[in-house]
Simulated assay, not measured.
Amino acid sequence: MTIPYRPALAGLEPYGAPQLDVPVTLNVNENPYSPSEEMIADIAAAVADASRTLNRYPDRDFTALRADLADYLAAESGVRLDPQQVWAANGSNEVMLHILLAFAGPGRTVMSFTPTYSMYVEYARDTFSQWETLPRKDDFSLDLDALPRELARVRPAVILLASPNNPTGTALSTHELTAVLEAARGNGPSDAAGSDCLVVIDEAYGEFRRDGVPSALELLADHDNLAVSRTMSKAFGAAGLRLGYLGAAQALIDQLRIVRLPYHLSAVTQAAARAALRHSTIQLAQIAALRDGRDMIVQRLHSLGLETAPTDANFVMFGTFPDRSEIFSRVLERGVLIREVGPAGWLRVSVGTPDENEAFFNALEEAMR
Rank of each mutant, 00 (worst) to 15 (best):
I3M: 14
G11W: 09
E13F: 10
Y15A: 14
A17N: 08
Q19P: 06
L20V: 06
L20F: 01
V24F: 01
V24M: 02
N27Q: 02
P35D: 07
D42P: 07
V47P: 12
R52K: 15
R52H: 14
L54Y: 15
P58R: 12
P58Y: 09
D59N: 10
F62N: 14
R66C: 02
D68R: 08
L69Q: 02
R80N: 10
L81K: 13
V86R: 02
V86Q: 03
E94V: 10
V95R: 02
M96C: 03
L101V: 08
A104N: 06
R108K: 13
M111R: 12
S112M: 06
F113G: 04
F113W: 07
M119A: 07
M119N: 09
Y120T: 02
V121A: 14
V121G: 10
F128S: 14
W131F: 12
E132F: 09
K137H: 08
D138I: 09
D138M: 13
D139R: 11
F140I: 05
S141L: 13
D143F: 06
D143V: 07
A146T: 15
P148W: 04
P148K: 05
E150N: 15
L161V: 00
A162L: 03
A162M: 05
S163W: 00
L172S: 00
T174I: 06
T178H: 04
A183S: 08
A184N: 08
A192D: 14
A192M: 09
S195P: 00
D196A: 03
I201W: 00
I201F: 00
I201P: 03
E207C: 01
E207S: 12
R209I: 10
R209S: 10
R210C: 08
V213E: 00
E218L: 10
A221E: 13
D224N: 13
N225G: 06
S229Q: 11
T231A: 09
T231D: 00
S233W: 01
A235Q: 07
A235D: 06
G244S: 06
Y245A: 01
A249Q: 09
Q250S: 12
A251Y: 05
L252G: 01
I253C: 02
L256R: 03
L256D: 00
L261M: 15
P262N: 07
P262D: 12
P262E: 08
Y263S: 14
V268G: 06
V268S: 14
A275C: 13
T281R: 15
Q286F: 10
A289M: 12
R294S: 06
R294L: 08
D295W: 02
M296W: 12
V298Y: 11
G305E: 04
A309K: 09
N314L: 11
F321G: 15
E326M: 13
F328E: 11
F328D: 13
R330D: 11
V341T: 13
V349E: 06
N357S: 05
E358N: 03
E365G: 02
E365P: 00
E365Y: 01
A367E: 03
R369A: 08
R369M: 08
R369F: 00
